[in-house]
Nucleic acid binder design. Structure first.
Lengths: 201, 201, 201, 201
DNA sequence: TATGAATGAGAGTTCATTCAT
DNA sequence: AATGAATGAACTCTCATTCAT
């Protein structure tokens, strides 16, 4: 017979997992993937060294879970935030508003992502890119391509435009003074890109 | 002994140093700071394990030297490339042209920089930022502030504008498909920013 | 409560124990003592990790039980198989016939024994030797000594002869091609030993 | 500790390697492959933990080197010892004489081999079998097949006969009282096999 | 009695750094 | 100046064992 009632047990497992993930976010954000120490994460979460291996089979898997978790929340929040916007320009506007609000709320999480996107290890980059695919798809389809079709934006290689938008977006998620400045001015930043996309030749 | 004639010993030292730095660029670019292996660098340069410690007192110091070296060349080349440009817009244009040319020529070096700028360790970020201070100063003073004064650009927080420009710039230096796309379209990217800075409210 | 009727609880306990032992045989045979994983055994038997500790107090104890179990069956079967043989030579013959039949039937069990007999840890070897004492006694008393007395075999150190017989016997229980070959030719092997024991000086 | 003089470089490296191998023989013989501890070997040889990795890239490689080393000496000694024997029977006789003399001289080494031959891990067994291939080839070709051709031995499956001979041979190399008894009576053991092979049907 | 999450010692391996040569 | 063997702390991961339920 299970130690706890099934529902209670699962809830507790979920809770432990959450705690481990939270500790992992901090560790990865502070030290990067290769510098992060699995045992330290487990102890920071209040458990013994080995406990984390009851939840994640390896450092890689833990990292992927962390990134996936952040990305899921991040994407959901942003896509939700842009949901009511009728036209591409206002979608872009809201993308930055919602995204940077998330970044202000979870600076560590978002820094981890920004850092991992520039990681030298291709596996790491792939994990992040895969997790953020929904956001990239939204930007390319619903903002850039829709905006070009609807004459909101001038003709421009949509992939290039997407790359620039996401570059600025994740630039605002990074660590440092510049990133903070960007993050705190979602409107201004969106406006620059908007005008740029509208008129650039 | 005349100053302009370095002794043979000094010349050799310089040469060894250069080789070690070159090997270090590849290693750091490929594996990141924590993943890089000092012994491997020394051997890749054609020397024995211990030799590198005759030139750099520690891994940290070697990394700082690598970054400083790249930054010096990078800044010099870019500032040189923008030297003939009379007005801020054309300076911006040439910034991207020259900078991305450098990036195409030395992708490893430039990737290392982009990665280090997002490094989780603040010390690392500081090293890079300090090394790129000349470039940042140029962008802020000679492009953004000059452009605002001369009515090329609309009134905008100059630090924010600088942050955005540099964000896109270093985004083009990173690894990955998106960065490559950006890097190969310096003109289009500059144009987006130019129009954006000209008209955004 | 009548002695011959075990309570249902006891029957169930017995059944669980049997299942755990069976799983343990496979694990120990496949991975050896140090490589075996107690939790994996418990789960392979269809129970949770901790369950096995309700039946065996430690890995050592489990191993001893496994060995004892195999040895008991093995000895019983062999001694039964030789029961009808009137003279020492035919006892030797039947020893190999019955023993190798068991080995063919339970290759994992028998391999485990052969391996444990050569284990580097003296405690392990002692467990096995102790468990196989009945078989050794039979070989020494009823085959070798009886054979020498009855002039079936030449005069030879009975303990040495016993050691050789058992050496070949357990050699046929091991893993590998050679062992299989031996195991499949009980008659030929017995014949070699028989002639050897009859005439060697 | 030992920082060697340059002139003696190679010799000293060889010496260190020998010391590590000797320590490894004891460790593997005492604890078996999975129970052996690499760090303990290095320290038992008088060096720090990591030192052994300057000589052997992994535990597996160290083990293979140990086995190869023992096997080379063992085979050489035995083949040398049988060199002057003109006919198969005397070759068999000398095989046991020389082989068991080696076993008496290096009981740990030989025990390690006997144990590894029965290891549950197939990789381990393969390493040993491969290293002892010369001995097996000699027994099969120069003793068994030659003996059958020359009518020294009766017709018998040569592979089976080889398996039995090697089984007894390595049985005499094992740990334990029985093995010691066998090892100390090379003549009697050879005689048993000889007569057996001569007349068995 | 059965469960399985938690534990923490200990494994193999890596590598920045030292220093005698 | 150059070498590279030696060092040992630190890493990821495993697993026998415990114990609250």
């Amino acid at each position: 017979m299970p130690r706890y009632k099934r529902s209670e047990g699962e809830q507790i497992k979920e809770e432990v997992r959450r705690r481990l993930l939270a500790a992992a976010v901090d560790e990865f954000a502070t030290r990067g993937y290769p510098g992060a120490n699995i045992n330290r994460i487990s102890r920071a979460a209040g458990y013994a060294q080995g406990t984390i291996y009851n939840y994640f089979p390896s450092k890689q898997a833990l990292f992927a879970a962390v990134v996936g978790d952040i990305a899921a929340q991040h994407c959901e929040l942003v896509l939700q935030g842009t949901a009511g916007a009728a036209d591409p320009p206002s979608r872009l506007e809201r993308l930055f508003a919602a995204g940077f609000a998330f970044a202000e709320g979870f600076p560590n999480a978002v820094r981890l992502i920004a850092s991992a996107m520039q990681a030298p290890e291709p596996e790491v980059r792939e994990v992040v890119q895969h997790a953020y695919e929904p956001l990239r798809a939204y930007v390319e389809q619903e903002i850039v391509r829709a905006g070009c079709l609807g004459k909101d934006f001038c003709a421009i290689d949509p992939r290039l435009a997407t790359a620039v938008i996401l570059g600025v977006y994740f630039g605002g998620c990074a660590a440092g003074e510049d990133a903070t400045r960007i993050r705190r001015s979602p409107h201004a930043v969106a406006s620059i890109l908007l005008e740029g996309l509208k008129r650039s030749r």
